[in-house]
Design a protein around this nucleic acid. Structure first.
Lengths: 236, 236
DNA sequence: TCGACCAAATTGGTCTGACATCTTAGCATT
DNA sequence: AATGCTAAGATGTCAGACCAATTTGGTCGA
């Protein structure tokens, strides 16, 4: 009588995982690092005792997950280390306009980045603090020298995320950046943005150094407010 | 002189996208909704004028992204609507122990859920409020009746996320739940959890109703603290 | 008439083989 | 020594065949 049975008999996690798991095992057992080249498809074929099409589909799986990159005529390369214990969390954001997507993403970033800085302020070790300060100094140096400091700004923030000792923060924020860099030149590259957000980076560092959780949150919000201004101005 | 050129010649978004884009176009143009069945591989083959292996690899792509499900002998089915404008953001969390993964995920959820409730408190319309209250009443009713209220609790939170008018919040949190439900029975199902987190849901609703942003944040934190207790107790 | 059972058609899963296209490295020529 | 070319090797694609699971339709029997 039910025209669309919601309850599936749940074969659930099925055979498709077998080959991808086998490939993940192979990558793990071979101790492959990011940037390394995987064996050729015909080698994996005989190594895993399966046909080439099966190998290719497993490769496509990890390619869709952003773990692997294939270059025609050259080979397939590992972008991020992976093991069978890796948990994949694919997200799909369907939006008509890029401006909306950027603003929506920024709202989420407010939550994640503030929490990351708060956790970093709470959990940071002295070693973390040294790394963060090094990146901050380098960023300020390049900023005075060249006017912009895109890569150095990114490195500073990544150092903070690493201080949370929670890899998920870095994963999430790095992925959000990479995803949207395909469509939009990030304001970090612009001189105007660097100038306006400049002072807040030092105050953010001071808050993390003093382990002042609330201050870390407020300084992060100030930086993101500058980003929001840029998005609204740029895409109108 | 550089032994590992960081700068890639950037074929970047290459040919692999062509077929997947074509498949996304096909899905969009055919007005397929979630749950619908896609044409058979052999039909898509002739429809898109490509070989079957190419079709299969495109299907594997969307399958890895959690958009499509294939059932042997039956067909391939759409799980989530997709268009060419869909932006995919795959995440990989590599962790040795499930307990660590859950706690790390919880830290991120603190950031996202708090922000979602804050945004909801700010942006909610009266229509949103009615929907949230309906779900809250239903949840309390079932709780009194059965002792637990797993699905109703989820529906309540989803209604809040929808009140943000930002689909990314719901996407992110739904995906985090789905991902980890494969490995762990969520405490929402447990009577103990429902009892302890019970009062905070009503206060959270009141905060959103009053558009009190700070209160919404604090009540959300209280709920998540209960979750944290459960994770720490459950996995020791 | 209704239910159970069976067989054929349909569909995804896999393997094999072949060819095209691109990359890379080594060789030969200048 | 620098340059250009060729061949080997890699991925990308197509075609055809067969297997395994599901679905569907019809037949048979109670």
């Amino acid at each position: 009588m039910s025209d669309r049975p919601v309850i599936r008999p749940l074969p659930a996690i099925d055979r498709a995982r077998q080959v991808t798991d086998a490939l993940a095992d192979y990558i793990k057992s071979a101790q492959l690092k990011a940037g390394d080249r995987l064996p050729a498809e015909r080698e994996l074929m005989s190594a895993l005792m399966v046909g080439r099409s099966t190998i290719r589909e497993a490769i496509r799986h990890f390619q869709a997950l952003g773990v692997i990159e294939t270059r025609k005529g050259s080979g397939t390369y590992l972008l991020k280390p992976v093991s069978k214990a890796t948990i994949h969390m694919p997200l799909s954001l369907d939006t008509g306009h890029l401006r909306d997507a950027l603003l929506q993403t920024l709202e989420v970033r407010r939550g994640i980045e503030c929490e990351a800085c708060m956790v970093a302020a709470r959990k940071r070790t002295d070693t973390d603090l040294v790394l963060i300060e090094q990146n901050l100094n380098e960023m300020e140096r390049v900023h005075i020298e060249k006017g912009t400091s895109g890569p150095e700004d990114l490195a500073f923030h990544l150092a903070i995320y690493d201080a949370t000792h929670n890899p998920l923060f870095r994963q999430l924020l790095e992925q959000m950046r990479e995803t949207f860099w395909q469509f939009w030149e990030h304001p970090f590259e612009r001189e105007d943005f660097a100038r306006r957000s400049f002072p807040f980076h030092r105050t953010l560092f001071n808050a993390i150094a003093a382990q002042d959780v609330e201050a870390a949150r407020e300084e992060t919000l100030k930086i993101l407010d500058v980003v929001e201004e840029d998005i609204k101005e740029m895409s109108k």
